[in-house]
């Protein structure tokens, strides 16, 4: 049992080690002067990856072939529709947020209906869905950016106790997800389904319900993230979620969640999200050229994954 614990621990610790190393190298560039600024920026932007990463983690935990590719489009649609509904009126912030969450709910249900009723593999189903969602986003507002109301944008860019507000939001969501995953029956079911769907079904677990809820959870988190990202960057843009497709999968994998499913890891998402932001900042700071920067990012990510997984195998 202690060995098991140490395996878990040793897997997610790697993403934090990597983030710390990259942070140190970046800060060294200015002899320590950039310490506070860089840390605050890292927590601000990591918050978005954490929120979508947690959703993707749940989906990936369901087992091989499960992945949600509709995250970017969902982010775009929820940000666009919510801000259009709020229309710079501060009194409508809460209903706007609920609308964003509702869009996530709808997308999640639609995703799973495609997967279940039409028996389409999740990769294809969610990709197809993302075209529909993206087109809906284009249709609703033709790419016009509507500003968030002042209190909302103040909240999104603000700090509380030295940490960005959005990092607190991400922390709250992470805590809930952690409890859901580790302490609730639903979390145990998700892991059981991911380890062996047939065994789970024979054990009497409502497999379809579990999978459906997981896709809904992922889409809702993506929608919430889109809402905050749009509030943070001064309005929703049609291409605003684009980066979060690869990002959501990368943070899950680097964070130590098993791609084969059935084994997820919440703290690792934090380390990986900080790492993903810091690695780009480091390469930018040292002035690497774009092509070189992408190669380096790829190599570093592969390196971290190898380091994390080989460690597990040895133990």
């Amino acid at each position: 049992m202690t060995q098991l614990v140490s395996i878990y621990r040793s897997r997610w610790i790697w993403s934090f080690v990597a983030a710390a190393v990259v942070w140190t190298i970046t800060v060294m560039f200015t002899g320590g002067a950039s310490m506070v600024g860089l840390t605050q920026a890292a927590f601000t932007f990591a918050a978005f990856s954490i929120i979508v990463g947690l959703g993707q983690m749940f989906v990936i935990t369901l087992g091989p072939g499960n992945v949600d590719l509709s995250i970017p489009a969902t982010m775009t649609l929820s940000g666009t529709v919510a801000l259009k509904f709020i229309n710079v009126d501060a009194s409508l912030i809460v209903p706007g947020f609920l609308i964003a969450a509702g869009i996530g709910l709808g997308v999640g249900l639609a995703n799973y209906s495609l997967i279940k009723l039409l028996r389409i593999p999740p990769i294809i189903a969610t990709l197809a869905m993302s075209f529909i969602i993206q087109s809906t986003a284009i249709w609703t507002n033709r790419g016009l950016r509507i500003r968030p109301p002042q209190p909302l944008s103040d909240f999104a860019v603000g700090f509380t106790f030295g940490l960005p507000n959005l990092a607190w939001v991400a922390l709250l969501i992470s805590a809930l997800i952690y409890l859901l995953l580790e302490k609730s029956v639903f979390g145990r079911w998700v892991i059981a389904v991911g380890q062996n769907m047939r065994a789970a079904r024979l054990a009497g677990i409502p497999v379809d319900g579990v999978r459906c809820l997981t896709y809904v959870l992922c889409a809702v988190l993506a929608a919430i993230c889109g809402f905050f990202l749009a509030s943070f960057s001064g309005g929703a843009a049609l291409n605003m979620g684009a980066e979060y497709l690869l990002m959501s999968i990368a943070v899950v994998v680097i964070g130590g969640t098993s791609v084969a499913g059935g084994d997820s890891n919440v703290p690792g998402i934090w380390g990986a999200s900080l790492f993903m932001f810091l690695v780009v900042s480091m390469l930018n700071t040292y002035g690497f050229d774009a092509g070189y920067r992408m190669i380096m990012t790829g190599i570093i990510i592969i390196g971290v994954i190898i380091a994390a997984s080989s460690r597990t195998v040895r133990i």
Partner: peptide, 21 residues
Amino acid sequence: SVHGDWAQDVAQRAVAGVLPS
């Protein structure tokens, strides 16, 4: 020099990351 991908949110993130140094 950072890549902002002609998008405000991407530019914002890239600039925030490089600015401290």
